[in-house]
Amino acid sequence: MTPPPGSLLAAEDLRKAYGPTVALDGAAFSIHPGEVVAVMGPSGSGKSTLLHCLAGIVPPDSGSITYAGRELATMNDAQRSALRRSEFGFVFQFGQLVPELTCVENVALPLRLNGTSRREAERTALGWMERLEVDDLAKKRPGEVSGGQGQRVAVARALVTTPKVLFADEPTGALDSLNGERVMELLTDAARSTSAAVVLVTHEARVAAWSDREIVVRDGKSRDMERAV
């Protein structure tokens, strides 16, 4: 199989084992610019590992991952870090905001890692917080905001660099359905407005329903349902 034409990020035949545990066993993936793809599957199926491989956080044991025509396997750790800083954004299940920094500082963090000045980074950050309706929390610390608010701050942080690909790993996993809905709505709206591709790892069908298309991972193998049907 060759990656479908026009895809932004594509992976072929990924294999990855942690010790004796096989996490990925020939998984494939592709996503187009502006597309929202859900990665589904039961827990332990390897979907988080797929995300980590795609994002260049973990190198796969074998297989190829191409992002915008570049092969991730040929990049070193520093290059992949730089790629993550500038082209990718991340949302995790539990926000993972830095507890010491205020919300706006948290949102500004990826920009600052890219070398943007503090003042400018925080101005941009505030703009994103407004879009996610959490600008009133700017001066609060993560410990002082609710889970849903924190997750929205995390989404703002993921989008602040206007990434080409947004990786979201169970972004609503820790939220009730109302807050989860709202976060998904804001996340997909924001991603669509910047034509960011979204890789959405979830085991919840209702969250996956926000996607354009889904991929099912089972026992380390992926299945693209669109092509199957």
Partner: peptide
């Protein structure tokens, strides 16, 4: 540790 991993995912340099 989770926070650190998250920061690494953002592309935070080890040096930082």
């Amino acid at each position: 540790r989770k926070l650190l991993s998250a920061l690494v995912a953002f592309g935070t340099r080890r040096r930082t």
